[in-house]
């Protein structure tokens, strides 16, 4: 049985519409008009126990709404969902003992108190035995490298330190599934890497399944084997991260420099010239259309090579391309 199972899930919000200015406000007061916004449009997916599943998409794609339905915060408009065999919006309290959640924009640690005080409060909320709770705090403090931070008021922690404490707090009750909504939002590169390492470590040590939403492709690349891409409330891609790279990394960019001047009309068959300078050029080609061999051969034949760099698009660019495809289909 999958840890998370979602079938044709939909969520529609009613948004009040108002024209700009005083006249618009008065009209809205007298005759309010509403527009329906389909935040989630019939998505279906499964997540296995212990899996690290990436759930990515741009702002407003429906990621957070889906996570909120799966934690029981929101009721869906239609469709089915089960987390660990429970329907979240009907068995919210029962389910909350089995799952943990962290929302990057909604801290759960008490701002003016040291994190350890919130940890003890969570011990009561999750009905943990005092002795076991102490042991669990010690274990998580070591795993997340937060021993030195536990007694510092949360308001004095850096964002990265705070987020590690947040994730540690969500693991106090040994949840089987962790729902992380944008945990790396606002973090610098180093803090992101530390957070990713700790999430990976807890997955290795305790087998906790993680559904991770992010609009940072780096989070997904570093942690997840499988990814679901959502755009405008619909799933536009689902597969292994490695397959995503293979499928979309066929476009190569080549930067080439020569020891002698290039002719101004320098060109190669099947290759798009992005920029041609006096001693170098930048070009792009798709390996499915133009094989690599003739391109490299053509570059070598064009003159005395000083340097060649062949690069692939980043995962960010790949995902951007997928969003673009989805939008052009809609258009």
């Amino acid at each position: 049985m999958p840890a998370v199972s979602v079938r044709d899930l939909r969520k529609t919000f009613q948004l009040k519409q108002k024209a700009a200015g005083l006249r618009g406000s008065l009209r809205a007061l007298w005759r309010p008009s509403f527009q329906e916004l389909d935040a989630v449009r019939g998505i279906s997916f499964n997540m296995d126990e212990g899996e690290l599943l990436g759930f990515i998409g741009p702002n407003g794609a429906g990621k957070s709404t889906t996570i909120k339905i799966l934690t029981g915060i929101l009721h869906p408009s239609s469709g089915e969902a089960e987390v660990l065999g429970r329907v979240p919006w009907r068995q919210r309290q029962e389910l909350a003992f089995q799952i943990g959640s962290v929302f990057g924009q909604r801290p759960q640690l008490w701002y003016h108190l040291p994190a350890v005080d919130t940890f003890y409060l969570f011990g009561k909320i999750y009905e943990l035995d005092d002795r076991k709770l102490k042991g669990r705090i010690a274990f998580l403090a070591e795993a997340f490298e937060i021993e030195e931070l536990l007694e510092t008021p949360v308001r004095k922690l850096s964002l990265g330190q705070r987020m590690r404490c947040e994730v540690a707090a969500s693991l106090l009750h040994r949840p089987r599934v962790l729902l992380l909504d944008e945990p790396s939002i606002g973090l610098d590169v180093v803090a992101k890497q530390r957070l990713r390492m700790t999430i990976q470590r807890m997955n290795d040590l305790e087998g906790v399944g993680v559904l991770l939403t992010s609009h940072d492709a780096g989070d997904i690349e570093a942690l997840c084997r499988r990814v679901i891409i959502i755009n405008d409330g619909e799933i536009v891609y689902r597969d292994k991260v490695s397959a995503l790279r293979r499928r979309y990394l066929t476009v190569k960019t080549v930067d080439v420099r020569y020891n002698e001047q290039l002719p101004p009309d320098f060109a190669l068959p099947g290759v798009e010239m992005v920029k041609v300078g006096r001693y170098g050029a930048k070009m792009r080609f798709d390996t499915r259309v133009t094989p690599v061999g003739p391109v490299i051969g053509g570059l070598a034949a064009a003159g005395s090579l000083a340097d060649v760099t062949v690069s692939e698009p980043s995962l960010e660019e790949v995902i951007g391309a997928i969003y673009g495809q989805a939008e052009s289909k809609d258009g």
């Binding site: 909120k68 934690t71 029981g72 915060i73 919210r92 309290q93 029962e94 389910l95 909350a96 003992f97 959640s101 929302f103 909604r106 759960q108 909320i125 999750y126």
Partner: peptide
């Protein structure tokens, strides 16, 4: 939207 916090924890 601050009820999210209370809804995500196993208490009334």
């Amino acid at each position: 939207g601050q009820m999210d916090y209370y809804l995500s924890l196993p208490r009334p």
